[in-house]
Design a protein around this nucleic acid. Structure first.
Lengths: 264, 264
DNA sequence: ACAGTATTTATCCAACGAGTTAATTTCGCC
DNA sequence: GGCGAAATTAACTCGTTGGATAAATACTGT
């Protein structure tokens, strides 16, 4: 969901300053072309734009740093609309947070690890996590913001609590299979493993700014990112299988994963 | 540096409401006991209290969420003092950030890994990192805040950039020794390893609030923390040595580390 | 004991930011 | 073709907040 696109859409939907009506957009091309219209109704679209703008704003500035007016402008809306369609700043934030969790849970469900052999399944899991974080940097920021607030909002949210991640069970199953097949040495706690896998990607990406300064190199350069993914996969697989780090050369492990596997 | 203590110190230093002067405190017990004094000079103490209060405030509320007035109150000072002793809100923040980096670097230097055998050295490193983060939760929060700002302040700070962490070199040396002795299988990139070790602790602790909600259990309970440390050490050592996860039972690895090794 | 400076207090204020109120416009429906 | 509800805009309120100013008080050297 690209905010720039959404704004362009709105902007060109009704050419506010001129009379020109070039609305070639999908959905609601009005058949009666009234002139002099100042605005056009679009509740769902408005709500979407508002939430998208709010997500960006909360992600880049945190809860306290976010500005309601800025969200309105970014959404191409009037500030009153935020209150009309969603609620006050806190409601806005909670809605964004819930949507973020829903989104990642949905993508997680699309990943089937069941029929992969255990090492490949773990590798795919790491690859997915890494790429999801990479593609959704706001999610990282929102998570952190919520932790600053000691999960105050999350606790209130029945919605998020009902969204169980399928990963813990999946990892548990993969680990059991791995142990049975002899691929893995020990049955690690799936929660610990899940946290560790998330941690390896999360920390690198969410702290890439300060780490880049400290180490004096750009950790978000293509090369650096490739190396990181490689390192993480090797680290975890070496630990689980008891085989050497070196055994896991890139191609066989990383080849079948990649971005194509992700849901749109 | 305990803010409550500092405040108590100040509060009892001059008993403002009564005449009673029970100043048993170190440093500057005034020999001429003037009566009716309204306040006492203490520039260094004031500065310390301000910075400590600011650290707490920035850590719990982020940069934008921090309130200058609240810092003043917490420091037992007048707001004007912040500007007098440190500078505006941004200066305050940068000073706090720099102090935080200085502190961890100082403790890092106190850790000598050179004469430990490689696996023990790595275990101690993990233990140190874990416990440092546990003892200094504000550091985690500050790091995140700074990353939200895309390291804007850090880049400006010549001080922090000059504070090289000794860990990258140390880890490099340990890894080389380990490879030479046959303990380790492959010479991993020390930067990657450093980041991974920090990541495993950082993510767990800084996101413990949301993770606890998601998993429905208290990740900061004593038991859970012990398990986490155990898991991290096993994970990394198994990966490096190529031996099984199970080989590393708790006692031998964790015994010689513990809190006593840390600098005050 | 006195002058001059360092430190601290007591107010003030202009800008900002969240949230509201009321007026205006669109649109489905009869 | 017009009525009423839904959607949107414009303008305003009012507490908060970072920062500034000036006055008061403690300390230092002489």
């Amino acid at each position: 969901m690209d905010i720039a696109f959404l704004n362009r859409a709105r902007a060109c939907y009704i050419e506010r300053s001129g009379d020109l009506r070039t609305s070639t957009l999908a959905k609601a091309v009005p058949n009666k072309a009234k002139r002099n219209q100042k605005w056009q109704r679009d509740p769902e679209g408005m709500r979407l734009r508002i939430l998208e703008a709010a997500k960006q704003e909360f992600a880049t500035h945190g809860l306290a740093g976010a500005r309601v007016d800025r969200i309105a402008v970014k959404a191409g809306a009037n500030k009153r609309m935020l209150y009309y369609h969603v609620g006050n700043k806190d409601d806005l934030y909670l809605t964004v947070l819930e949507a973020a969790y829903e989104k990642i849970r949905a993508e997680e469900r699309g990943l089937d690890l069941e029929h992969l052999d255990p090492p490949k399944a773990i590798a795919r899991l790491i690859d997915f996590t890494w790429n999801y974080f990479l593609r959704n940097p706001e999610f990282l920021a929102l998570l952190h913001t919520e932790n600053l607030a000691r999960a105050r909002h999350l606790k209130r949210s029945t919605k998020v609590k009902s969204l169980h991640s399928p990963f813990v069970e999946l990892i548990g199953a993969v680990v059991r299979r791995g142990v049975a097949s002899g691929d893995f040495q020990v049955a690690v706690d799936p929660v610990q493993l899940y946290i560790s896998i998330a941690a390896l990607s999360f920390f690198y990406l969410s702290n890439s700014a300060t780490l880049s300064v400290i180490f004096g190199r750009d950790l978000l350069a293509k090369r650096a990112k490739d190396e990181r993914l490689d390192h993480m996969v090797r680290l975890v697989l070496a630990a689980l299988t008891g085989k050497s780090f070196a055994v896991f050369d890139r191609q066989p492990v990383l080849e079948p994963l990649a971005t194509a596997t992700h849901i749109a």
